[in-house]
Every structure is written in structure tokens, then in C-alpha cells.
């Protein structure tokens, strides 16, 4: 079988894979990084979102072999080595940006990608950027609030602004 080598959260990792092996299968089943979730497996929900060479990608809709040599960051790579949460993760905790938590890894990866492209997004820009991330608990309000907070912007007026 062909081999694929990725840098995953800063560590070089190699595996033999089939042509059809998806990035999310490689991460979860082979590298045992199960923080990246499979929600819909049809590229709708975004629970599998990771960063590939810095760009947000749905890992259920990318072939492992197509990404040979890429630099992949998953939710496991977001916190510091000592367990210190990233600013986005800390904001999700502070503002209760999750209910059941299933969509959260993808939400955090999407939020981090957004803030790297647009450090001070508006509420409308946050909501637009999250179009490909679905929260089945429909807890969007606090997710938006957390991302706004992670960008260093005030959140006190949020309830009134999006009512």
C-alpha cells in the first residue's frame, strides 16, 4: 500500500493507507487523534474541520494521499504542551460556547482559522464564516459570543445586537 507522511501538530507521522482513506480516517483510526469528529460524513457539518497548511478543511472530504507532505493541525494541537488552552478554547469555556460538545472541535478550528484571517470580525462575519459548521444543539449564540471574546472585542451588547 502507498505511504503518506504528514506533519500532525508538529510531529512527523507516517502510515500506509488505501487510495480511499480519508484524512479524518487517518487521523482518528491510525493516529488515534479522535478529537476530530465525524458528524455527517457528507461535508455538511464541519465537526471534522482541521487546518491543512493553515487553511480550514473538512477532513471527511479530503484524501489522505492527496495531502502527502502537508502540515496538519487538529484540535489536539490547539492547547499548549502544558495544557494551557488556546485563546479560542478558553473563550469557549468562559462563555459556555458548547452544549453537548460534539461540534466543538470543528467550531474551534473554524474560529481559529477565522481569527487568523480576520482578527476583529463582526458578529455577521462570524456567523457567515460558521456557515459550514453545524451545532445540532443550536447553541450558536454562545459560540458567536466566545469567538467575539477570543478576538478581544466586548460581548456585553451581543444579545441586543442579534436579537
Amino acid at each position: 500500500m502507498p505511504q503518506v507522511t504528514l506533519s500532525v501538530n508538529g510531529t512527523q507521522m507516517t502510515a500506509e493507507v488505501e487510495g480511499r482513506t480519508l484524512l479524518v480516517e487517518l487521523l482518528r483510526d491510525r493516529f488515534r487523534l479522535t478529537g476530530t469528529h465525524i458528524g455527517c460524513d457528507t461535508s455538511q457539518c464541519g465537526a471534522c474541520a482541521v487546518h491543512v497548511d493553515g487553511a480550514l478543511v473538512k477532513a471527511c472530504t479530503a484524501l489522505a494521499l492527496d495531502l502527502d507532505g502537508a502540515d496538519v493541525t487538529t484540535i489536539e494541537g490547539m492547547a499548549g504542551a502544558d495544557g494551557t488552552l488556546s485563546p479560542v478554547q478558553q473563550a469557549f469555556q468562559d462563555h459556555h460556547g458548547l452544549q453537548c460538545g460534539f461540534c466543538t472541535p470543528g467550531m474551534v478550528m473554524a474560529a481559529a482559522a477565522l481569527l487568523s484571517e480576520n482578527p476583529k470580525p463582526t458578529v455577521a462575519e462570524i456567523r457567515e464564516y460558521l456557515e459550514g459548521n453545524i451545532c445540532r444543539c443550536t447553541g450558536y449564540h454562545n459560540i458567536v459570543k466566545a469567538i467575539l471574546a477570543a478576538s478581544g472585542q466586548p460581548v456585553d451588547d451581543l444579545a441586543a445586537s442579534v436579537a
Binding site: 461535508s43 464541519g46 474541520a49 491543512v52 487553511a55 480550514l56 478543511v57 473538512k58 472530504t61 479530503a62 473554524a110 482559522a113 477565522l114 464564516y129 456557515e131 459550514g132 459548521n133
Partner: peptide
């Protein structure tokens, strides 16, 4: 088109 992740691929 689509969403940000789709546009990146």
C-alpha cells in the same frame, strides 16, 4: 461558494 472549508479545497 459553499463555506470557507469548501472554498479552501
Amino acid at each position: 461558494i459553499g463555506d470557507p472549508a469548501v472554498r479552501n479545497r
